[in-house]
Write a protein that binds this DNA or RNA. Structure first.
Length: 673
DNA sequence: GAAAATAGCTTTTTT
DNA sequence: AGCTATTTTC
């Protein structure tokens, strides 16, 4: 029996309601992941087949975590059959299977934002970075709001929007020609597909009979649309799903998420059962009181009041510091002293801030004091140039129409193919509506490109062609070896970078190749999910290069590479969502930083308040808030006001800092020696 | 005139 | 820390 007395009444209610649409308003620290995982186990217990249940998350990290926790509740076989993935991975799965219905080959490529950027650069033939970015942003909006080019034009206001509308259809054509989709397409295209093809819609509805959505407040219009298409029309049948979310933690409005989707849910599904989880298992009550008082200032969709059985705990404190350096030293001093006093570990402390650059001062001082720390966020493994270089080859082998991959692979490392050759090739291919790759095989090309460059070009494409053929049958590790042999990537690195960077980059590459090879031999659940065939292969059949390449596009977290969470945790407020720490220091609680103020356009104060709320509710045992009276701006010091959120929380922002942190930091060091 | 150094400035981030 | 604009240097 999966339901036991460690669950509270509301949680049990949320788990047991399986006969209709369900919305769980899950306050911070109220055990929301627990409810989702237990509900899945309960559904299986009640006779749902695991292969008909899907749990949808927003990040790969969350999906992995969910699987991890499920592995303790349900048996291996069921876990294997479950769909636990991100919205995008689900969309991809649908698209790979149904590609033919929208005029794509199943081996279409997935373009990253960088690829999208270069495509737009090409279309617009400009180098104006901000223009390209704004257009990309507009097009992303159109897709997320399911605008057709015509609808977009009707809603266009500024010059940039009008220009974006003109580009939009061209952009769509270009991607089609490349046999590529962008990230937004992974949701948008399945929506269009299921909307236009009733049979397919029924097919997928039958496959995914029960859907659970995590972080529902972060869905955008398009994602909500996909959900609706998958659960079916409430007038025809009883939709079966559970959406779990918290309107107070909606902090991604700026990228299209709309917590209004919570409201829409009760309008669109009259039978919706709303269950609130208000008991908090994380924080002591002083922290919760601060959080509740703060968030009361927002207009709410669902009212809720967090409480816990953990007693009142430590007082929440505020420190007014002189400037950013004083603040950083003050925080680090306090952590040192606190740790010494309470015999806690560095890992128990987190310093959270609004913007990445605020970590700089902290890092300087932490390095100076030799205190270990972990900076969350930063560049992901797959964003590194050296990994993208390798991926460009893999992508090209996989889909030879992928022009951005062609350009990257043809030019890195240098192999006698330069910008002149590429421009000529581009023009040649453009007039013949062929991909760069196919154009290389055309005989007319001899009139356009001089023989030496043409030789390099044909040498390159024949190699890719050869590998592309072999990739269908031969095992991945042999082909990878051949590829690396051809690329001479190591010597390229040592030729172009200084020794230290080259060594570092080469290490990343070897790590990547090793990882790829390991994926080639043991396939895990996630990959089977992403892979569009062989759902039911049980053996350890090693993956060929084609299959491997498919999954790379969506993998952003290197699974084997657990980042060590040692030392003080430094993180932005956004990146800290979903995490918890014993002792939390929120810095820069100032007007201009939190709430953020960009001078020009008014930022959404309610969203900023929710961001503060997210920060406050990360703390389990103690919470420390700090702000600077002065900050360096353009060479001179400017005076700063404490954040309005401090007074909203009934905190006195002017509590005096009586000690000089620097002196005490030195004293602590002596004590510890 | 081009490369190198330096000063100034950052919203938030995932797929 | 990384990116850009500007200044300095050869």
């Amino acid at each position: 029996m999966i339901i036991n007395n460690t669950l509270n009444t509301a949680q049990i209610q949320a788990i047991k309601y399986t006969t209709g649409p369900c919305l769980v308003i899950a306050g911070a620290g109220s055990g929301k992941t627990r409810v989702i995982t237990h509900k899945i186990a309960y559904l299986i217990e009640q006779g749902f087949s695991a292969k008909n249940i899907a749990a949808i998350t927003f990040t790969n990290k969350a999906a992995n975590e969910m699987q991890e926790r499920l592995s303790k509740l349900i048996n291996k076989n069921d876990l294997k059959q479950l769909t636990v993935c991100t919205f995008h991975a689900l969309g991809l799965k649908i698209l790979r299977q149904e590609a033919e219905y929208i005029g794509f080959k199943p081996n279409f490529s997935i373009f990253s934002s960088e690829d999208v950027y270069s495509v737009l650069q090409e279309i617009l033939s400009t180098t104006d970075k901000s223009l390209i970015k704004s257009i990309a942003h507009c097009i992303g909006n159109y897709k997320n709001n399911l605008y057709t080019p015509d609808m977009a034009l009707n809603n266009a206001h500024s010059d940039i929007e009008i220009q974006a509308c003109k580009i939009y259809p061209i952009y769509l054509q270009t991607l089609k020609a490349y046999q590529a989709v962008d990230f937004d397409d992974l949701i948008k295209l399945p929506c269009e597909l299921l909307n236009n093809n009733n049979q397919l819609q029924i097919k997928w509805q039958n496959k995914l009979r029960y859907i659970l959505v995590d972080e529902y407040q972060d869905t955008n219009l398009c994602q909500y649309n996909l959900l609706k298409l998958l659960v079916g029309n409430p007038l025809e049948k009883m939709p079966l799903f559970t959406a779990v979310g918290d309107d107070d933690q909606a902090i991604y409005g700026w990228r299209g998420a709309s917590s209004d989707n919570l409201k829409k849910l009760s309008q669109d599904f009259k039978a919706l059962q709303v269950i609130k989880l208000e008991q908090n298992y994380r924080s002591s009550n002083n922290i919760l009181k601060a959080a509740n008082t703060l968030i009361k200032n927002n207009t709410k969709i669902f009212d809720k009041q967090l409480w816990s059985e953990h007693g009142s705990g430590d007082e929440v404190c505020v420190y007014a510091m002189n400037d950013e350096e004083h603040e950083a030293e003050g925080i680090i001093f306090r952590i040192s002293a606190h740790r010494f006093e309470r015999k806690t570990a560095w890992e128990d402390y987190a310093i959270l801030y609004r913007s990445n650059y605020q970590s700089r001062v902290l890092e300087q001082i932490l390095r100076r004091e030799n205190i270990s720390y972990t900076l969350s966020g930063g560049q992901s493994f797959f964003e590194k140039a050296e990994i993208k270089d390798i991926c460009a080859y893999l992508r090209l082998i996989y889909n030879t129409n992928d022009d951005p991959a062609f350009i990257r692979a043809a030019t890195t490392p240098k192999k006698g193919i330069g910008s002149t050759t590429l421009t000529k090739l581009g023009e040649f291919a453009g007039t013949r509506k062929a991909s760069l790759f196919d154009a290389c095989f055309m005989s007319m090309l001899e009139d356009v490109i001089n023989s030496q460059n043409l030789f390099s070009l044909r040498d390159f494409v024949s190699f890719i062609n050869d590998l592309s053929d072999k990739a269908k049958t031969e095992p991945a590790d042999i082909l990878l070896k051949e590829l690396m042999n051809y690329m001479c990537y190591e010597s390229y690195l040592y030729d172009t970078f200084d020794e230290k960077t080259a060594r570092n980059k080469w290490e990343n590459v070897t790590e990547f190749i090793l990882w790829l090879k390991s994926k080639g031999t043991n396939s895990t659940k996630l990959e089977q999910d992403i892979s569009f065939e062989n759902q039911d292969n049980l053996g350890n059949k090693s993956k060929n290069l084609i299959e491997l390449t498919q999954m790379i596009a969506l993998m952003t977290i290197l699974q084997g590479k657990d980042k060590q969470n040692s030392g003080i945790q430094l993180s932005t407020l956004h990146a800290a969502k979903g995490l918890e720490f014993s002792h939390v220091f929120l810095m820069g609680i100032e007007e201009g930083i939190l709430p953020f103020d960009n001078g020009e356009k008014q930022s959404d104060i309610e969203e900023e308040r929710r961001l503060m709320y997210v920060g406050v509710t990360r703390a389990k045992k103690s919470l420390h808030l700090s702000w600077c009276k002065q900050r360096k701006k353009g060479g001179q010091k400017t005076s700063i006001d404490p954040s309005r959120f401090l007074s909203e929380m009934n905190m006195n922002p002017l509590e005096k800092e009586k000690i000089n942190p620097k002196v005490y930091l030195d004293m602590m060091k002596e004590m510890l020696l």
